[in-house]
Amino acid sequence: MNELLPVLFAGFGVSFLGQLPLGNLNVAATQIGVEESIKKAWVFSMGVALVEIIYLRIALNSSGWILRNKTMFIYLSWATVILFFVLGVLSIRKALKQNEPERKGLLIDNKLNRFLLGLMLSAINPMQIPFWFFWGAYFISNGAVKPTMLHFNLFTIGAGAGTLAGQAIYIHGGKWLIRKLKASHKMLNIIMGAVFIVSAAIQLYKIFSGGLFKD
């Protein structure tokens, strides 16, 4: 039992720390918590975590295939850059035009189930696979995670819990901070757009620096 806990905590730690930097998913969780409800924000985060788990298992079980298909991930990364940039520009444009009573931002101004929204937003960033490929290979190579079904399952469970824990900080802490600062909904929507544009810029940097598989 004692040798299994480090596997669980390894997955939790990597995923939790990966959620802490400001990103479109955790800002969206904050936005839903502020403009809709905490319950819907958690439903959204469940969708995000499910895709994270799926991508992690793909990375753990398909390392050879990933290495043989790096070019495909580069193309997907370019598509992500374009999509994030467009969403960022549209979000800021909508925010600048909106009146304060019109609260919802571009991403959540719809009737889509928040679980499905979390699935979709998380799924459009396939670069999570190289991220988990790197960390999975790192822990397997140093013996912290053995290439067995039990260890893979524990690592995956830990990662899912880490994702939810990171999202929780933005759901509850973000809502508290926004109320404390008395930030307007327009400002929150502008921040969301800016995060998308910054995410696109970071992804673009990774493409040109060759860092897609060096997260």
Rank of each mutant, 00 (worst) to 15 (best):
L121H: 06
L83D: 01
S199I: 06
G211F: 06
L154W: 12
S91D: 01
P126E: 02
V27M: 10
Y170G: 06
A200Q: 07
G88F: 06
L67M: 13
I178G: 00
H185W: 01
P6F: 12
F73H: 12
G118R: 10
L90K: 13
G166T: 07
N69C: 08
I58Y: 11
G47Q: 11
Q98R: 11
S77Y: 05
F84R: 09
F85I: 09
K206D: 00
M192A: 13
I178E: 02
G173D: 09
L112N: 03
I178R: 02
G162T: 04
K186W: 05
A194E: 05
V34E: 02
G166C: 11
A59Y: 04
P147F: 11
R93P: 00
V14P: 00
K180N: 06
G193A: 05
E3F: 15
Y138E: 02
F208A: 10
P21Y: 10
Y75G: 15
G174I: 08
A159P: 06
A49Q: 07
A29P: 01
M120L: 14
G174C: 07
D109A: 06
G33H: 04
Q128T: 14
A59T: 08
R103K: 14
L188S: 03
L154T: 08
G136R: 04
D215N: 12
V81A: 09
M127T: 04
K111Q: 12
W42G: 04
L112W: 09
K39C: 05
F152G: 04
K186M: 08
A59S: 13
L25I: 13
W176G: 00
A201H: 08
G166E: 04
A10G: 07
I169E: 02
S63I: 10
E102D: 14
V51G: 00
F155E: 03
G210S: 09
R57C: 13
L76E: 08
E102P: 00
I82S: 01
S37T: 15
F139A: 09
G210K: 08
T80H: 05
L164S: 04
R179V: 07
L164Q: 04
I191D: 00
A194Q: 06
H172I: 13
G18D: 08
S63T: 10
L150N: 11
I171G: 01
T71G: 07
Y170A: 06
Q128P: 00
K111Y: 11
N99R: 12
L177D: 05
G174W: 09
L177T: 05
G162W: 05
M1G: 08
V81W: 08
A144I: 15
K180V: 01
A123E: 00
S77I: 10
G174H: 07
L150T: 15
K104N: 11
W65D: 03
K146V: 08
S45D: 03
I197P: 00
P147A: 02
S15L: 05
T156N: 13
A161N: 07
S122A: 13
L83A: 06
I32S: 03
S141A: 15
L67K: 13
T156P: 14
F115T: 05
I202H: 05
Y55Q: 14
G158C: 13
T163H: 12
G210R: 11
G88A: 07
W78R: 06
G162F: 11
G211Y: 07
E3C: 11
L87W: 03
H172Y: 15
I140E: 08
Y75A: 15
F155R: 11
V86T: 04
V14T: 12
R57M: 14
S141Y: 13
N153M: 14
G88E: 01
K39F: 14
V43D: 01
F133P: 10
L5T: 14
S122H: 03
